[in-house]
Write a protein that binds this DNA or RNA. Structure first.
Length: 271
DNA sequence: CTTTACGCCTGACGGC
DNA sequence: TGCCGTCAGGCGTAAA
Protein backbone atom coordinates (compact mmCIF):
# COMPACT_ATOMS: atom_id res chain seq x y z
CA UNK A 1 0.00 0.00 0.00
CA UNK A 2 1.26 3.45 -0.66
CA UNK A 3 2.55 4.96 2.55
CA UNK A 4 3.80 8.45 3.13
CA UNK A 5 7.18 7.94 1.40
CA UNK A 6 5.48 6.50 -1.66
CA UNK A 7 3.05 9.40 -1.78
CA UNK A 8 5.91 11.83 -1.47
CA UNK A 9 7.77 10.08 -4.29
CA UNK A 10 4.66 10.12 -6.45
CA UNK A 11 4.27 13.81 -5.71
CA UNK A 12 7.82 14.54 -6.79
CA UNK A 13 7.37 12.38 -9.85
CA UNK A 14 4.14 13.81 -11.15
CA UNK A 15 4.62 17.44 -10.19
CA UNK A 16 6.94 18.31 -13.11
CA UNK A 17 4.45 16.77 -15.52
CA UNK A 18 1.45 18.54 -14.06
CA UNK A 19 2.54 21.98 -12.96
CA UNK A 20 1.44 24.81 -15.25
CA UNK A 21 -0.61 22.43 -17.35
CA UNK A 22 -4.19 23.19 -18.25
CA UNK A 23 -6.74 20.42 -17.72
CA UNK A 24 -8.33 19.63 -21.08
CA UNK A 25 -10.60 16.81 -20.12
CA UNK A 26 -11.65 14.76 -17.10
CA UNK A 27 -12.88 11.21 -17.59
CA UNK A 28 -14.44 9.28 -14.73
CA UNK A 29 -14.86 5.56 -15.37
CA UNK A 30 -15.85 4.59 -11.83
CA UNK A 31 -17.36 7.08 -9.40
CA UNK A 32 -17.71 4.69 -6.50
CA UNK A 33 -14.52 5.05 -4.52
CA UNK A 34 -14.36 5.65 -0.75
CA UNK A 35 -16.69 8.49 -1.49
CA UNK A 36 -18.47 9.13 -4.74
CA UNK A 37 -16.33 11.13 -7.10
CA UNK A 38 -18.10 14.48 -7.24
CA UNK A 39 -20.43 14.85 -10.19
CA UNK A 40 -19.46 17.92 -12.15
CA UNK A 41 -15.77 17.41 -11.50
CA UNK A 42 -15.09 17.85 -15.19
CA UNK A 43 -17.10 21.04 -15.33
CA UNK A 44 -15.16 22.34 -12.36
CA UNK A 45 -11.69 21.37 -13.56
CA UNK A 46 -11.61 21.67 -17.34
CA UNK A 47 -9.82 24.87 -18.22
CA UNK A 48 -8.15 25.12 -14.84
CA UNK A 49 -4.39 25.25 -14.69
CA UNK A 50 -2.47 23.19 -12.15
CA UNK A 51 -0.40 25.45 -9.94
CA UNK A 52 1.38 22.99 -7.71
CA UNK A 53 1.19 19.55 -6.14
CA UNK A 54 1.34 19.27 -2.36
CA UNK A 55 1.22 16.40 0.08
CA UNK A 56 -0.40 16.42 3.49
CA UNK A 57 -0.08 13.10 5.30
CA UNK A 58 -1.06 10.61 2.63
CA UNK A 59 -3.24 13.06 0.77
CA UNK A 60 -2.10 14.57 -2.50
CA UNK A 61 -3.34 18.03 -3.34
CA UNK A 62 -3.43 19.25 -6.92
CA UNK A 63 -3.93 22.96 -6.51
CA UNK A 64 -5.35 24.61 -9.58
CA UNK A 65 -6.50 28.06 -10.56
CA UNK A 66 -10.09 27.05 -9.79
CA UNK A 67 -9.82 24.80 -6.79
CA UNK A 68 -7.98 21.80 -5.42
CA UNK A 69 -8.25 18.16 -6.32
CA UNK A 70 -7.72 16.05 -3.21
CA UNK A 71 -6.47 12.52 -3.89
CA UNK A 72 -6.01 9.64 -1.51
CA UNK A 73 -4.66 6.32 -2.78
CA UNK A 74 -6.10 4.17 -0.02
CA UNK A 75 -4.72 0.65 0.09
CA UNK A 76 -4.13 -0.09 -3.52
CA UNK A 77 -4.16 3.16 -5.43
CA UNK A 78 -1.55 4.30 -7.89
CA UNK A 79 -1.04 7.10 -10.37
CA UNK A 80 0.67 6.89 -13.69
CA UNK A 81 1.20 9.09 -16.64
CA UNK A 82 -0.10 7.51 -19.82
CA UNK A 83 -0.92 8.53 -23.36
CA UNK A 84 -4.56 9.46 -23.66
CA UNK A 85 -6.22 6.90 -25.87
CA UNK A 86 -4.75 3.93 -24.07
CA UNK A 87 -7.88 2.07 -22.99
CA UNK A 88 -8.26 2.01 -19.23
CA UNK A 89 -8.60 -1.37 -17.58
CA UNK A 90 -11.31 -2.24 -15.10
CA UNK A 91 -9.42 -0.83 -12.14
CA UNK A 92 -8.59 2.50 -13.72
CA UNK A 93 -11.14 5.00 -12.57
CA UNK A 94 -10.11 8.50 -13.51
CA UNK A 95 -8.13 10.39 -16.14
CA UNK A 96 -6.96 13.97 -16.14
CA UNK A 97 -6.02 14.84 -19.69
CA UNK A 98 -3.62 17.73 -19.89
CA UNK A 99 -2.79 20.31 -22.51
CA UNK A 100 0.68 18.83 -22.98
CA UNK A 101 -0.91 15.67 -24.32
CA UNK A 102 -0.26 13.62 -21.23
CA UNK A 103 -2.82 11.94 -19.07
CA UNK A 104 -2.69 11.36 -15.33
CA UNK A 105 -4.50 8.11 -14.64
CA UNK A 106 -5.72 6.86 -11.28
CA UNK A 107 -5.86 3.12 -10.70
CA UNK A 108 -7.25 1.64 -7.50
CA UNK A 109 -8.40 -1.99 -7.49
CA UNK A 110 -9.74 -1.95 -3.95
CA UNK A 111 -11.25 1.48 -4.23
CA UNK A 112 -10.36 2.59 -0.72
CA UNK A 113 -8.98 5.73 -2.26
CA UNK A 114 -10.72 9.03 -2.75
CA UNK A 115 -11.03 11.84 -5.27
CA UNK A 116 -12.50 15.05 -3.90
CA UNK A 117 -12.75 18.61 -5.06
CA UNK A 118 -12.75 21.78 -3.02
CA UNK A 119 -12.76 25.44 -3.87
CA UNK A 120 -11.84 26.37 -0.31
CA UNK A 121 -8.50 26.15 1.43
CA UNK A 122 -7.76 22.42 1.12
CA UNK A 123 -5.97 22.34 4.46
CA UNK A 124 -9.24 23.44 6.06
CA UNK A 125 -11.14 20.59 4.43
CA UNK A 126 -12.79 18.37 7.07
CA UNK A 127 -10.55 15.45 6.13
CA UNK A 128 -7.37 17.46 6.56
CA UNK A 129 -8.17 20.06 9.16
CA UNK A 130 -7.50 17.87 12.17
CA UNK A 131 -4.37 16.13 10.99
CA UNK A 132 -1.39 16.26 13.30
CA UNK A 133 1.97 17.67 12.24
CA UNK A 134 3.90 16.33 9.29
CA UNK A 135 6.37 13.79 10.66
CA UNK A 136 9.23 15.36 8.71
CA UNK A 137 8.47 18.90 9.83
CA UNK A 138 10.05 20.53 12.88
CA UNK A 139 6.71 20.54 14.70
CA UNK A 140 7.03 16.80 15.15
CA UNK A 141 9.41 15.72 17.88
CA UNK A 142 9.63 13.82 21.14
CA UNK A 143 8.23 16.71 23.12
CA UNK A 144 5.13 16.78 20.95
CA UNK A 145 4.56 13.05 21.25
CA UNK A 146 5.15 13.09 24.98
CA UNK A 147 2.77 15.95 25.48
CA UNK A 148 0.03 14.43 23.34
CA UNK A 149 0.41 11.06 25.07
CA UNK A 150 -0.34 12.42 28.51
CA UNK A 151 -3.03 10.36 30.15
CA UNK A 152 -3.48 8.07 27.18
CA UNK A 153 -3.98 4.44 27.93
CA UNK A 154 -4.17 3.21 24.37
CA UNK A 155 -1.22 1.20 23.01
CA UNK A 156 1.56 3.39 21.67
CA UNK A 157 1.18 1.74 18.28
CA UNK A 158 -2.41 2.95 18.01
CA UNK A 159 -1.32 6.35 19.29
CA UNK A 160 1.37 6.62 16.63
CA UNK A 161 -1.07 5.66 13.90
CA UNK A 162 -3.61 8.23 15.06
CA UNK A 163 -3.60 10.85 12.31
CA UNK A 164 -4.46 13.59 14.78
CA UNK A 165 -1.23 12.89 16.64
CA UNK A 166 0.98 12.78 13.56
CA UNK A 167 -0.05 12.60 9.93
CA UNK A 168 0.58 9.71 7.60
CA UNK A 169 2.06 6.96 9.79
CA UNK A 170 0.66 3.60 8.74
CA UNK A 171 1.18 0.10 10.02
CA UNK A 172 4.49 -0.51 8.26
CA UNK A 173 6.30 2.55 9.50
CA UNK A 174 4.77 2.43 12.95
CA UNK A 175 6.02 -1.14 13.26
CA UNK A 176 9.49 -0.25 12.01
CA UNK A 177 9.85 2.89 14.12
CA UNK A 178 8.82 1.12 17.32
CA UNK A 179 11.32 -1.62 16.58
CA UNK A 180 14.11 0.88 16.01
CA UNK A 181 13.21 2.82 19.13
CA UNK A 182 13.01 -0.35 21.23
CA UNK A 183 9.47 0.35 22.39
CA UNK A 184 6.91 -2.41 22.80
CA UNK A 185 3.93 -1.66 20.55
CA UNK A 186 1.47 -2.62 23.26
CA UNK A 187 2.80 -0.27 25.90
CA UNK A 188 0.35 2.39 27.04
CA UNK A 189 1.22 5.65 25.29
CA UNK A 190 0.93 7.66 28.48
CA UNK A 191 3.49 5.51 30.27
CA UNK A 192 6.50 6.21 28.13
CA UNK A 193 9.22 8.62 29.21
CA UNK A 194 10.09 11.75 27.32
CA UNK A 195 13.54 10.49 26.33
CA UNK A 196 12.03 7.42 24.74
CA UNK A 197 9.68 9.62 22.74
CA UNK A 198 12.72 11.53 21.51
CA UNK A 199 14.06 8.22 20.25
CA UNK A 200 10.71 7.32 18.70
CA UNK A 201 10.38 10.62 16.87
CA UNK A 202 13.91 10.22 15.54
CA UNK A 203 13.11 6.68 14.43
CA UNK A 204 9.98 7.82 12.62
CA UNK A 205 11.90 10.52 10.79
CA UNK A 206 14.69 8.11 10.00
CA UNK A 207 12.58 5.36 8.46
CA UNK A 208 10.55 7.82 6.43
CA UNK A 209 13.61 9.62 5.14
CA UNK A 210 15.33 6.37 4.24
CA UNK A 211 12.26 5.23 2.34
CA UNK A 212 11.93 8.52 0.49
CA UNK A 213 15.60 8.32 -0.45
CA UNK A 214 15.03 4.77 -1.62
CA UNK A 215 12.05 5.90 -3.65
CA UNK A 216 14.11 8.55 -5.33
CA UNK A 217 16.59 5.97 -6.54
CA UNK A 218 13.99 3.34 -7.40
CA UNK A 219 11.99 5.77 -9.45
CA UNK A 220 14.37 7.61 -11.71
CA UNK A 221 11.87 8.95 -14.13
CA UNK A 222 8.20 8.81 -13.31
CA UNK A 223 7.01 9.60 -16.77
CA UNK A 224 9.02 7.12 -18.73
CA UNK A 225 8.79 4.47 -16.05
CA UNK A 226 5.34 3.72 -17.50
CA UNK A 227 4.31 2.52 -14.12
CA UNK A 228 3.66 3.93 -10.75
CA UNK A 229 6.04 2.93 -8.01
CA UNK A 230 5.10 -0.21 -6.21
CA UNK A 231 6.66 -1.09 -2.92
CA UNK A 232 10.02 0.38 -2.36
CA UNK A 233 12.66 -2.23 -1.87
CA UNK A 234 13.20 -0.89 1.60
CA UNK A 235 14.81 -3.30 3.98
CA UNK A 236 12.21 -3.90 6.65
CA UNK A 237 13.43 -5.03 10.04
CA UNK A 238 10.18 -6.08 11.67
CA UNK A 239 7.11 -5.62 9.48
CA UNK A 240 6.19 -8.94 7.90
CA UNK A 241 9.15 -10.65 9.57
CA UNK A 242 7.35 -12.64 12.23
CA UNK A 243 9.29 -15.77 13.08
CA UNK A 244 12.56 -14.34 11.81
CA UNK A 245 15.41 -13.67 14.20
CA UNK A 246 15.60 -10.14 15.57
CA UNK A 247 18.60 -8.53 13.90
CA UNK A 248 19.72 -7.04 17.19
CA UNK A 249 19.41 -9.92 19.64
CA UNK A 250 18.48 -12.99 17.64
CA UNK A 251 15.25 -13.57 19.51
CA UNK A 252 12.33 -14.69 17.34
CA UNK A 253 10.05 -11.86 16.27
CA UNK A 254 6.50 -12.22 17.51
CA UNK A 255 3.25 -11.07 15.99
CA UNK A 256 0.18 -9.92 17.81
CA UNK A 257 -2.88 -7.90 16.89
CA UNK A 258 -2.77 -4.50 18.53
CA UNK A 259 -5.49 -1.99 17.84
CA UNK A 260 -6.91 -4.17 15.05
CA UNK A 261 -3.60 -4.24 13.23
CA UNK A 262 -1.01 -6.95 13.05
CA UNK A 263 2.09 -5.93 14.92
CA UNK A 264 5.49 -7.55 14.75
CA UNK A 265 8.00 -6.95 17.50
CA UNK A 266 10.87 -8.37 19.48
CA UNK A 267 9.78 -9.18 23.00
CA UNK A 268 13.33 -8.88 24.24
CA UNK A 269 14.43 -5.62 22.59
CA UNK A 270 11.13 -3.82 22.74
CA UNK A 271 9.86 -2.86 26.14
C1' DC B 1 -12.42 13.75 25.51
C1' DT B 2 -10.63 8.81 24.59
C1' DT B 3 -11.16 4.24 22.99
C1' DT B 4 -13.05 0.49 20.33
C1' DA B 5 -15.41 -1.84 16.58
C1' DC B 6 -16.94 -1.74 12.04
C1' DG B 7 -17.22 -1.48 7.07
C1' DC B 8 -15.84 -0.31 2.69
C1' DC B 9 -13.27 -3.51 -1.34
C1' DT B 10 -10.59 -7.05 -4.06
C1' DG B 11 -6.53 -9.91 -4.78
C1' DA B 12 -3.95 -13.41 -2.71
C1' DC B 13 -3.68 -17.53 -0.44
C1' DG B 14 -4.73 -21.94 1.86
C1' DG B 15 -7.63 -25.92 2.12
C1' DC B 16 -10.05 -29.34 -0.17
C1' DT C 1 -8.00 -27.17 -11.84
C1' DG C 2 -11.52 -24.77 -9.48
C1' DC C 3 -14.25 -23.17 -5.77
C1' DC C 4 -14.74 -21.06 -1.38
C1' DG C 5 -13.63 -18.96 2.98
C1' DT C 6 -10.51 -15.86 5.18
C1' DC C 7 -7.80 -11.98 5.61
C1' DA C 8 -5.20 -7.64 5.02
C1' DG C 9 -5.32 -2.92 5.45
C1' DG C 10 -6.30 3.14 5.77
C1' DC C 11 -9.17 5.61 7.88
C1' DG C 12 -13.67 7.81 8.54
C1' DT C 13 -17.53 7.07 11.40
C1' DA C 14 -20.62 5.45 14.90
C1' DA C 15 -20.98 3.82 19.29
C1' DA C 16 -19.48 3.00 23.93
Amino acid sequence: MPELPEIETIRRGVAPVLVDQRVEHVAVYQRRLRWTVPPGLGRAMVGASIRDVLRRGKYLLLRTTRGTLILHLGMSGSLRVVDPGVTPDKHEHLDLVLANGRCLRLRDPRRFGAVLWTTEDPLAHPLLAHLGPEPLDPGFDGAWLHQRARGRRAPVKAFLMDARVVAGIGNIYATEALFLAGIHPGRAAGRIARARYDALAAAVRGVLQDAIRQGGTTLRDFVRSDGAPGYFSLRLRAYGKQGDACERCGHGLLTRVIAQRSSVYCARCQR
